[in-house]
Amino acid sequence: KEEVSSHTSPETGIWVTLGSEVFDVTEFVDLHPGGPSKLMLAAGGPLEPFWALYAVHNQSHVRELLAQYKIGEL
């Protein structure tokens, strides 16, 4: 988790977690339908608090999209 928390910018890579999985979403930030700034709120940390607020994320196609960016496990 400490390593994930240091990845919060395009220069270091933008990493997020979901459960025990780690994702590098650097290439996706500008494609995020809610805008880059919304995704950047989660940079370096867990997606769960944000996904709890926005139910649109609880769809299979969203998880499939995220899976493409998986880089490891906590």
Score class of each variant (00 low, 15 high):
H7I: 06
E11Q: 10
N58K: 13
T26M: 05
E11Y: 05
V22N: 05
V22S: 04
R63D: 08
A42G: 02
S6V: 15
L31H: 08
L66T: 01
T26D: 00
E73I: 08
V16C: 14
G72L: 10
Y54R: 07
P49V: 05
L41F: 04
L74W: 15
A52H: 12
Q68N: 08
G19C: 06
E64M: 09
G72R: 09
G45T: 05
E27S: 11
L53E: 15
L47F: 04
R63N: 06
K70M: 09
E21K: 11
S60C: 07
L39K: 00
Y69A: 03
L41V: 04
D30V: 09
L74C: 13
G13S: 07
L53F: 04
P49Y: 09
R63H: 13
A52E: 15
A43I: 05
V62N: 00
W15F: 11
L74Y: 15
M40E: 03
G44A: 03
P49S: 07
T26L: 02
L53Q: 15
H61Q: 04
F50S: 04
T8W: 08
S6H: 15
G45E: 04
G72Q: 06
G13Q: 07
L65M: 11
F50M: 10
F28E: 10
G72E: 08
V56I: 06
V4F: 08
A42F: 01
Y54F: 03
D30A: 09
V29Q: 12
I14K: 06
V29S: 05
S6C: 15
H32G: 03
E48F: 00
E21G: 12
L18P: 00
F28A: 00
S20I: 14
W51C: 03
E2D: 13
G34W: 04
M40I: 06
G13P: 03
E2N: 05
Y54I: 02
I14V: 10
F23Y: 13
I14G: 02
M40H: 07
D30E: 12
E73C: 09
L18S: 13
A67Q: 14
L41Y: 04
T17D: 00
P36W: 11
V29P: 02
H32T: 05
L66D: 04
S6I: 15
G13N: 05
T26E: 02
S60L: 13
L53C: 13
T26S: 12
S6M: 15
Q68A: 10
H32L: 02
E48W: 12
L41G: 06
G34M: 00
V22T: 07
P33R: 06
W15T: 04
F23Q: 06
S5H: 14
F50L: 12
V56E: 09
P49H: 11
T26K: 04
N58F: 11
G44Y: 03
L74T: 12
F50Y: 15
I71P: 01
V16R: 04
A55T: 15
I14E: 02
I71C: 13
E64P: 05
S6D: 15
E3S: 15
L18C: 12
N58D: 11
T8Q: 13
E3D: 10
M40S: 05
L47W: 04
K1H: 09
L65I: 14
E21R: 09
P33K: 00
N58I: 05
H57C: 02
V16N: 06
S37Y: 08
R63T: 10
E27W: 05
E2V: 14
S20N: 15
L47K: 00
G19M: 09
A67P: 03
S20C: 11
S9H: 15
G45C: 11
L31A: 06
E11F: 04
L41A: 10
W51V: 00
V25Q: 00
T17V: 04
G44N: 03
L41E: 12
G19W: 03
D24Y: 01
S5L: 14
H57I: 01
E73V: 09
P36G: 15
H32R: 03
I14R: 01
A43Q: 00
I14F: 06
G19Q: 07
A43K: 08
M40R: 09
F23C: 04
L74P: 09
L31W: 06
A42D: 01
T17G: 05
G72F: 10
W51E: 05
E27M: 10
H57F: 00
Y54M: 01
H7A: 02
H57S: 06
A42M: 05
G13I: 05
G35H: 00
P33C: 02
A67T: 13
A43V: 11
V56N: 07
E2C: 04
S9T: 13
E73D: 14
Q59K: 13
T12S: 13
L18Q: 12
R63G: 06
S6Y: 15
W51D: 09
A67Y: 13
Y69G: 07
A43H: 02
V29R: 07
E73K: 12
G35T: 03
N58C: 09
G34Y: 00
F28C: 05
W15D: 04
E48Y: 03
A42R: 04
L53T: 15
K38V: 04
V29G: 01
Y54V: 02
Y69K: 07
G72S: 09
H32W: 08
S6L: 15
S6Q: 15
H7M: 10
K1E: 07
H32F: 01
W51Y: 06
K38I: 02
W51A: 01
R63V: 07
V16F: 06
G45Y: 04
V56Q: 07
H7V: 08
L47S: 05
F23H: 08
G45I: 06
T8E: 11
K38R: 09
I71W: 08
T17F: 10
P33H: 02
I14H: 05
K1G: 03
S37Q: 12
V56F: 14
L65P: 01
T12F: 08
Q68W: 04
S6W: 12
L66S: 02
W15H: 11
L41P: 01
E27V: 06
Q59S: 13
